[in-house]
Structure formats: C-alpha cells, structure tokens
Design a protein around this nucleic acid. Structure first.
Lengths: 162, 162
DNA sequence: TTGATTTGCTTAACATGTTAAATAAAATGA
DNA sequence: TCATTTTATTTAACATGTTAAGCAAATCAA
C-alpha cells in the first residue's frame, strides 16, 4: 500500500446533512490506524524496494529471523499474512532461495519453514538502514511519544483479542 | 485483511544470534499498527459482510457521504485507496448504483463522484451498527485511552508527512 | 479399530495493492 | 499559436487480501 498521502490538514467535511452520527473519518480509529501506517511505511518502502523485496516478504523473513523455524500457521500468524497469501509467497521465496521448507517428521501435515543464509545476509544488509529510518521517525516524533503509542497499540490489540 | 489473530501473548523470540539489532517485531511500529488495525477491523468486518460491502467500499461511500461530491483524486486520497484500485471499485459501485459519475464541465480530465440515494440509505442502515461496535471498543479500552491513541496517531501521521 | 471430526495446508475465484506505462485534456512558455 | 510539460485518470501486469472449498493427515469417539 503506497498511497503518497498529502497532509490533508486543512480539509473539512462539507455535508451538513450529518443525520447519521458517524464519527468524522479523521477521528475514526480504523482509518486513523491505516493513515498512520501508511505514513510510516512510506518511509520504509523505498528502502525495501531497493533490496527487491516487498513489505510482506520482509515481515515473513524477519519473523523467521526472530523466532527461528516455524510451521506455516505460526509464521502466518506472526507475520500477519493470511494462509493462502503465505502459500503463494513461499513459492516465490523458495525459488529465490530465501526460505527453506521441510516437512515435520512427527506430523506430516505440518511444513516447517526457515530462512537460508541468503536471507540472513539480506537481514544484515537491510537492518542498519531499517534502524536508521526508525530512528529518524523516533527522533522527530519523540522517543517518549513513540513508547506511549506502542503501549497503546499493544493494549488495544490485546483488549480486542479478548 | 481478516487474520483472526490469536493473542500471542506468551510467545517469545527464539533466536539468540540477534547480531542484527532489529527491534523485536512486537515493538515494531509498522507491525504494531497492522496488528492493532486487524484487531479493530475484526470487530467490524462481520457487520460489513452482512451488508454485502467490504472495508474499502465502505470507506469510499463514507467519505463521499462526509465530504460530498469529490473528484477521483481527492476521493482516493481521503479514502486511502490507490488510483487504480478506485478505478476498478467504481465500476462495481456504479453497477450496484451506489455511486454516480459525471465529468467536470470545467476540466474534462476530472471525474466527479457522488453517492446515490441507495448509498445514503446504506449509510443510514450501517451507521447505528457501526457506532455500536465503536462504542463497545471504546468502553472496554476506555474513552480517555482512545482519545490519547487517536491524538498520537494523528500526530505521527502529520509528523511523517513533513 | 474405524467412522467421524478436526487440523494444517493448498487451491480457486475474485477483490484490492502496487508500480509502470498509456492516454487525453489542460496548462505553460517561447 | 504550437510544441512541451504537467495533471487526471485508466490500463496492464503481477502480488497480496479474502472467503470458501478441497484434501490429506491426525485425532477422537464409540
């Protein structure tokens, strides 16, 4: 999702017939989350593009780098990718030698996924740039604000899962 | 994106070789935003599905309901949809008589979009359910926390746009 | 033990996301 | 005025999102 969104700071709703009491989209949580995410990802996407990977592929590789070998279900859950998407992505990532597949000896239904040396090298390449971008965002937004935001995001996520 | 995500509260990273200093995905802002959004949308999606619309269609209709007639560029920007996606969506939404198109007399390049009576009726149907779901989320998370979260999201969005 | 159910993954079909290129109309400038 | 550039939208191609259905392996229950 690359929306190249302009600020929209001055725009105001025009309709007077607001008989439906829907919150203005500006203060709608789903839309605010999407906008915020887009504004953040806009900073990361050009860097990922330079390394010939997209957002989802980077998440999958990163999760396997962080957690080690996982089965497809756990990987999809943690990388926030749906099963059918993961199935397709794995075909690509196997061909490009970033991910290796093996079947679980104890449970033939399960596929175990792990990253290759090539993907580990990619992580080492991307990490410093990623950290730099993150720090730029954090230093402008403020480290305290960033912590507060992350805490609230974690909290509402946990809250909604109940 | 309907991920049906489980809490993942107790899971911990396994890899010791964390020589790359990437932040744990749990505290990664892009991922935290995505997770939070998924947890929120999971509450809304079944309701939208009952009304036979998806998330993006609802955003487009809602934006036109809020701002009135807009050209395609403004609509795409505000509804957080890319141009090519909007082009395709409009074909569907015109066929279903939710949206009407006319070309701008002053500038033949522009297409002006507005919602029909049918879409206004849909908004009236969906709004109370939407508001109810929103209030459920807000009452569990806390209205103060919700305000803080929305403020921080608006702030970081504005900050990143600079 | 075996028929029924559940689980893990894949396939299918259609929608949107994403980037690049194409097209047409409008604005610009010599 | 007319060639050039910019702007608004669409088309194309491929990737992921989403839901439903399918399939094989594992688990359950009688």
């Amino acid at each position: 999702m690359n929306l190249h969104i302009d600020p929209l700071i001055d725009s105001q709703p025009q309709e007077s017939e607001d008989s439906n009491n829907l919150r203005q989209t500006r203060r709608s949580l789903p839309i605010a989350l999407l906008r915020a995410r887009e504004s953040v990802m806009a900073k990361f996407r050009p860097m990922l593009a330079r390394h010939n990977i997209n957002e989802q592929q980077w998440r999958v590789i990163r999760i396997l780098g962080e957690f080690g070998e996982l089965d497809a279900t756990q990987l999809a859950e943690r990388a926030l990718v749906l099963g059918p998407s993961l199935t397709r992505m794995l075909k690509t990532l196997e061909k490009s030698k970033h991910i290796a597949k093996r079947s679980d000896k104890k449970d033939a239904r399960r596929t175990l996924l792990s990253i290759t040396a090539k993907a580990k090298a990619l992580i080492k390449e991307v990490s410093p740039e990623s950290i730099q971008i993150y720090q730029d965002i954090e230093s402008r937004f403020g480290a305290d604000e960033m912590e507060k935001l992350l805490d609230l995001l974690e909290a509402i996520t946990k809250d909604n899962a109940l």
